[in-house]
Amino acid sequence: MKILLAGDSTVANCPTQEFPMSGWGAHLAPLTYTWAAVHNFAKGGASTESFRSEGLWADLLAAAGPGDLVLIQFGHNDQKKQHLAARTGYAANLRTMVAEVHAVGAATALCTSVERRHFLDVPSSDAVLEESLEDYPEVVRELALELGVAVLDLNAWTRCLYLGLGPDGSRELFCHFAPGGNAHWPDGLADNTHFSQHGAALVAGEVARQLGGLGYGAKQRLAGTTAGRG
């Protein structure tokens, strides 16, 4: 089977010149190679609207078919557009996407957006993580129930991860470089949205774990074994 990814930069295979910045989709294939091939259509800056207008959604649908799984994670860039508010344009676009995936015979799982690392300026012992994505994650949870599809709650999981590591420990999950500390970012970088290789790999591991909890992986391997006995 194929796992096809629709999303933004937090999911995408980032360009070489942005290394070590990475989306979690770039690290998923090694975790699923025994039962699924990963096709990552995610793109930096994408919203539910631009993903369609740029032709990426059409390309994904053309590659999807019965037995495949489409994972959809947007929100970061929809949030920047008033007409893509969580309960209006964003929700409508996700409903359409799910219907179109099902029309080609594939399954869908909606992913809540990974959280940004925005800690409020308080003592580390009283760490408070801002809910930077407003009601977008909650709308995804509601839509999953409404449409009868699976949800991977990456927002809840990343929030727990950052809070567990604290403001200092969680910094290594993101792209923070001092000037001169990285060849691709000579002026330095303090980015609390885009993952480092380490951060992206951790999120990919959680995606694989949640897919396993939904029954993916084991049943695909079993089906392959059964087919091989013929």
Rank of each mutant, 00 (worst) to 15 (best):
A64T: 02
L4M: 02
D121Q: 04
S132E: 06
W157F: 13
E49G: 02
E49P: 00
D8I: 00
V139L: 09
T16K: 08
G199I: 00
L222V: 01
E54M: 06
S50G: 07
L163Q: 09
D191V: 05
L120H: 15
H118F: 11
H118S: 04
S170Q: 06
L69R: 14
R159H: 08
C160H: 11
P137D: 04
C160L: 13
L211G: 07
H39S: 06
T34C: 01
P30Y: 14
F19N: 02
T88Q: 15
A29T: 05
A6D: 07
A85M: 03
S9M: 02
Q220V: 00
S50H: 11
P66I: 04
L71Y: 13
H76F: 05
R52I: 08
A227H: 09
A92S: 09
R141V: 03
G169D: 06
T225K: 07
S196D: 03
G148P: 06
E130R: 12
Q79P: 00
Q220M: 02
D78N: 13
H198F: 15
L152M: 04
T10G: 12
S22V: 00
N182A: 08
A107Y: 10
V38L: 01
A223S: 11
G199Y: 03
D135E: 06
W57S: 04
A36S: 14
V207F: 12
G25T: 05
A204Q: 01
A190L: 09
T16V: 10
D8R: 05
K80R: 08
N93R: 11
H184P: 00
Q79T: 00
T48L: 04
A99K: 14
D168G: 08
A223I: 09
N77D: 15
E134Y: 14
G217F: 05
A85H: 11
G205D: 03
V149G: 09
A200N: 03
E54T: 12
R209G: 05
S9H: 03
A223D: 10
S124L: 02
M97G: 01
R52K: 12
E142L: 05
W24K: 10
K219W: 14
S9W: 04
L61A: 07
A12K: 03
R159V: 13
